[in-house]
């Protein structure tokens, strides 16, 4: 008796769903890709041994990093020591430390007006102010929001979405929306006038402009950091709170004794990310205020952009020198935060 070969079980075509077809389609792509990689990787592995294969896997990323990050960075450092307005490095005269000298040419570093490149120093001081208040405000608000959203309140999912929604918007869209709200004939002024109050031209007053720039960036970004902190909060074992509760600890004591120490690594990540992002502030503010009124909201990245690209005489060397200085400041900040992180891990 001959047995019929076993047929694979297949659904009739009319019962195969679109999802299944799509899944199969993407699986075919994936399998094809793996086949191609296999055809290259298998002989290579036989040739170089499995131990050395790691270098080959790292190589593509290293090439991308080298071409798009390391090479421009080195080029930028080279440009910082050149002058003129030519774009290509071979056409640019070497001027030594002249660009750095121009930036640091100050009689009093605390008074930008006494500096030759006063706009760089104004940008730098504005950036320091922005970082302190934007990061400080954002971390505090994100923390508060995360703690609240971690509790079992009604509509928790809805509020999580609401706080995260601005993160999905482009910085330019955010700036335009708020510009329409805050301008002379904007929504907020219409509301103020309706309530019988005086119209305020927010972007013509330095204090108001700085306030709104910080407020809007906190509004736009805090959802992202709230989400990270929320994940950190949810990883804290609940029985620790129960134990503290049984020991008679108040909520504040639980927060200080359990939540804060266990959340510290997450908090540090949030701090590092938000500081780096705050120092790089540019696009949103550029659209919102253009750096005005005067130079009240000019930040150091805008100074670099304007010096290199927006001015009629493009001083790439000076802009590169400024960006090298900014890079060094960021490096010191990051090293400091990493050191803090290590100390917190040890503790």
């Amino acid at each position: 008796m001959t047995r019929e070969p076993r047929q694979a079980f297949t659904l009739p075509p009319e019962r195969v769903t679109l999802g299944a077809r799509l899944g199969h389609f993407f699986y075919m792509i994936y399998a094809g890709l793996m086949s191609v990689i296999g055809w290259v990787a298998e002989p290579l592995q036989r040739w170089v041994s499995m131990k050395n294969m790691a270098y080959f896997f790292v190589l593509p990323n290293l090439i991308i990093f080298g071409v798009f990050v390391l090479f421009p960075m080195l080029l930028n450092i080279y440009y910082a020591f050149t002058g003129g307005t030519a774009l290509f490095p071979q056409d640019r005269p070497f001027v030594g430390g002249q660009n750095f000298q121009q930036i640091f040419s100050c009689t009093n570093f605390l008074d930008p007006n006494s500096c030759r490149e006063d706009r760089f120093w104004r940008g730098l001081y504005n950036t320091v102010f922005y970082v302190i208040f934007q990061v400080g405000g954002m971390v505090a608000l994100s923390m508060l929001t995360a703690v609240v959203l971690n509790r079992s309140i009604r509509g928790r999912g809805f509020f999580r979405s609401v706080f995260f929604y601005p993160v999905l918007l482009s910085p330019v869209v955010i700036a335009l929306i708020w510009k329409w709200i805050l301008q002379r004939d904007g929504l907020l002024n219409a509301l103020l006038v309706t309530l019988g109050m005086e119209r305020v031209v927010f972007f013509l007053n330095a204090n108001w402009a700085v306030f709104w720039v910080i407020f809007i960036s906190i509004w736009a970004q805090m959802g992202f950091y709230t989400l990270i902190l929320l994940a950190g909060l949810q990883s804290i074992p609940h029985d620790m709170y129960e134990a503290a509760d049984m020991d008679g600890a108040s909520r504040l004591q639980s927060f200080r004794g359990i939540t804060l120490p266990l959340l510290m690594p997450t908090l540090l990540v949030v701090l590092v990310l938000s500081v780096i992002r705050a120092v790089q502030v540019f696009d949103q503010v550029w659209v919102l205020t253009g750096g005005g009124p005067g130079t009240a909201t000019v930040y150091v990245v805008q100074y670099i952009y304007e010096t290199a690209f927006a001015n009629q005489i493009q001083q790439f060397g000076l802009a590169s020198a400024a960006s090298v200085i900014l890079g060094l400041i960021l490096l010191v900040l990051t090293l400091f935060q990493l050191r803090l992180g290590r100390q917190s891990d040890i503790a």
Binding site: R116, A206, T295, I313
Partner: peptide
């Protein structure tokens, strides 16, 4: 910058001259 109170008019004129001189020097380099 004078309108916003960041510079006095004399300071601003001095800065204008410095900016012009530096810009021309860069363009001629």
């Amino acid at each position: 910058q004078v309108f916003t109170g960041e510079l006095t008019l004399d300071e601003a004129i001095q800065k204008m001259q410095e900016d012009i001189d530096a810009g021309i020097a860069a363009a001629q380099q």
